[in-house]
Design a protein around this nucleic acid. Structure first.
Lengths: 233, 233
DNA sequence: TGAATAGTGTCTTTCAGACAATATGCC
DNA sequence: GGCATATTGTCTGAAAGACACTATTCA
């Protein structure tokens, strides 16, 4: 049986700090050509009715990554996606209830994998573009800003983008994804040179036909293993 | 008054997980041309008598960076040095007492700033080279390995090295520091080209005279502000 | 054959890496 | 003048960035 963690100790049995720990997840996806983050309306105090990152306290014997994956599943219906630890936030005053640490995670999910229901009003969740991030509860805006920085940085030297694409994709699709995440246009020839030199993707024999134009070759990532947070450097 | 955090809840008043949180600090310094980390003999169970990173539970109302700085002060007598958050480690089983998270920090200290007493036998601390890291308690060896990775990576694009140098230094001193941290020799001309192009250091009018050879110009970092963990990308 | 997107090559600049001779101050 | 270290430049290859035309398929 699983128990939900209690509210932070207001009257702890001993006069020591047992800081409460929450996990918050920055869930990235791409929709309508924009990099978006999933935010939810809080149904409890503090900040009831305000937007925040999905998150919550840890279950019994739960580690933070498991908690992050559970939250991800609850909010999006998705499992088995790329996720890594971002950072731990413990700035004093970040939670009005007292010292509560947030161990933040980052997840990347293709838009079409997100269950429609997960974004319905009943779930009180929505996707907001990172360039128009509204005010968020706690220090969640800082967390998102930091997550965006790291996502953009990792894009340049890792295969992190595979998480947002189907197994087979065209180089145009890949480039568009990069442009959306980086927030700027890229030169088609230079992009292809760089991507192919990195050796992360490989051309398959398949082609993609849509519309009446020339078909595009489909590529795939050589490896779907993504470096985890501990390999980041 | 400050209270020390208790041992992790063995019989918690409520059946929820309030994970205990410790802070561990990877304290880097350079000695005898080697990059070294400060480790201490544990005086308590678990792993009593074994080597571990300096660390401990949080005091009442203490945030992790404050705890890390307190631990740093206790072990080395040093304050006001560069320190940044590394990562949070919560692998199940990392602590035999149960789920105890470690929020790891990295600090850089010039060897001569380390109080001699801090390294005496009474303190049970010693400096060990990173390339000969002995077995450490908990998962501290992983933490050190990750810290080294990050230190080396940041060296290439940040002014993090300033923490290990006096305000004024020669380019030869700077190069030697880089060589020690990276664990390899660098070409003098290429190093100077790169460092000067980065724009992190600036030549001062001063010169450094020692021995009977040509004096060297002294440089200083343009800024002693180091990007913090949240600006890392 | 026209529409629409796919695919490709060159030039320039910058940077990394290999490589050695000259400059300066002190004794 | 000799010693010891400081300082400096060139060449080559790799990669980034600017830039425009040809290729292919289908309607």
């Amino acid at each position: 049986m699983v128990f939900r963690m209690n509210e932070p100790n207001k009257n702890p049995p001993v006069p020591y700090l047992n800081p409460s720990v929450t996990t918050d997840v920055v869930i990235f996806t791409v929709e309508d050509g924009l990099l978006k983050v999933l935010v939810a309306l809080r149904d409890k105090e503090p900040f009831k009715g305000h937007l925040a990152l999905p998150g919550g306290f840890l279950y019994q014997s739960e580690v933070t990554e498991a908690a992050a994956r559970r939250i991800l599943k609850e909010k999006t219906g998705v499992a088995n996606v790329f996720m890594e630890q971002l950072c731990t936030f413990d700035t004093p005053g970040r939670d009005p209830r007292g010292p509560i640490f947030s161990i933040a995670y980052v997840a990347l999910i293709p838009r079409k994998k997100l269950a429609i229901g997960a974004l319905s009003d009943t779930q009180q969740t929505s996707l907001v573009p990172v360039h128009k991030m509204p005010a968020l509860s706690f220090d969640h805006r800082d967390i998102v800003r930091y997550a965006v920085k790291r996502l953009r940085a990792k894009l340049g030297y890792s295969n992190i983008a595979y998480s947002l694409l189907p197994e087979f994709f065209t180089l145009t699709e890949l480039q568009t994804l990069y442009e959306v995440i980086l927030g700027k246009k890229l030169d088609k020839r230079n992009f292809r040179k760089k991507i192919l030199r990195l050796g992360l993707v490989r051309k398959t024999g398949k082609v993609y036909r849509e519309g009446r134009q020339r078909p595009a070759f489909l590529f795939r990532f050589v490896s779907r293993e993504t470096t985890t947070f501990r390999d980041m450097f």
